[in-house]
Computed example of a mutant assay.
Amino acid sequence: MRDRRTRDKRARVLSVVDQLVAENEPVTFTGVARAANVSHWLVYAEGVREHIEAARHRQGRAAASGARAGAKEPVGWKLEKQLLQEDNRRLREEVGRLKAAVRRSLGQQLDQFGAADLGTRVDELTAENQRLQAERDDALARVKELTAQLSEVQDDLASARISLRRMIRAENAP
């Protein structure tokens, strides 16, 4: 199935090349790919490329003997150049449209957040920040207080253990 499609595409390319030569139209890789509705890699594939180059060579020899014998550019370059310029123009227009759409979208997003809304939000965040700092300071003071109590309790415990050991020794003494 795939081989048949490949053969059909190659045959279509060769037919287009023969048609362009018969109509005395310039044969270019891009022009052939577009006219045959195939990818660019196919027109450069082995077996197809040689056929296109041969047609271009024949056209070049015919032009050399004809009125365009003094032309510096090979046949088809003007068409290739024109096609590329059209593609570039189309792509530039598309880039311009996309840039404008992005600008409009960003503008709408910025309009949604007015200066008054942003000021209110900043005030809210500032108040929340101050509240959290106060909570942190209270928690640190509580930790300091509990650390002091723990130290005091540990000292009391150590003293009680020492007293208990002395009492046990005194009881066990003869």
Results as ranks from 00 to 15, higher is better:
78 K>Q: 05
122 V>M: 06
111 D>E: 12
80 E>V: 01
69 A>Y: 02
83 L>A: 11
94 E>S: 09
68 R>E: 02
91 L>Q: 15
97 R>W: 03
91 L>K: 15
81 K>Y: 01
67 A>V: 05
116 A>M: 03
69 A>D: 07
64 A>N: 03
120 T>N: 05
89 R>D: 06
86 E>A: 14
88 N>W: 09
73 E>P: 00
114 G>M: 05
67 A>T: 05
103 R>T: 13
104 R>M: 12
59 Q>P: 03
102 V>D: 10
99 K>A: 00
118 L>D: 12
81 K>Q: 06
95 V>W: 05
84 L>D: 09
81 K>T: 03
70 G>L: 07
66 G>V: 01
115 A>V: 09
58 R>K: 14
80 E>F: 08
107 G>E: 15
115 A>M: 09
96 G>Q: 06
83 L>D: 11
99 K>P: 00
76 G>P: 08
82 Q>P: 00
95 V>F: 06
117 D>P: 01
71 A>F: 00
94 E>A: 11
115 A>Q: 12
64 A>R: 13
109 Q>K: 12
85 Q>V: 04
58 R>T: 12
104 R>G: 13
85 Q>F: 07
99 K>L: 06
93 E>R: 10
69 A>W: 02
109 Q>T: 04
77 W>E: 10
101 A>T: 10
79 L>A: 06
57 H>R: 15
71 A>K: 01
58 R>H: 09
72 K>M: 02
66 G>F: 02
76 G>W: 03
79 L>H: 08
67 A>W: 01
59 Q>C: 04
77 W>D: 05
109 Q>M: 07
63 A>W: 02
99 K>N: 05
70 G>K: 08
98 L>K: 14
90 R>C: 00
98 L>T: 09
110 L>P: 01
117 D>R: 14
65 S>V: 11
69 A>E: 04
76 G>K: 05
113 F>N: 10
115 A>G: 04
60 G>F: 03
74 P>C: 02
106 L>F: 06
91 L>V: 02
123 D>I: 02
117 D>F: 06
72 K>N: 04
60 G>W: 02
90 R>P: 00
97 R>K: 10
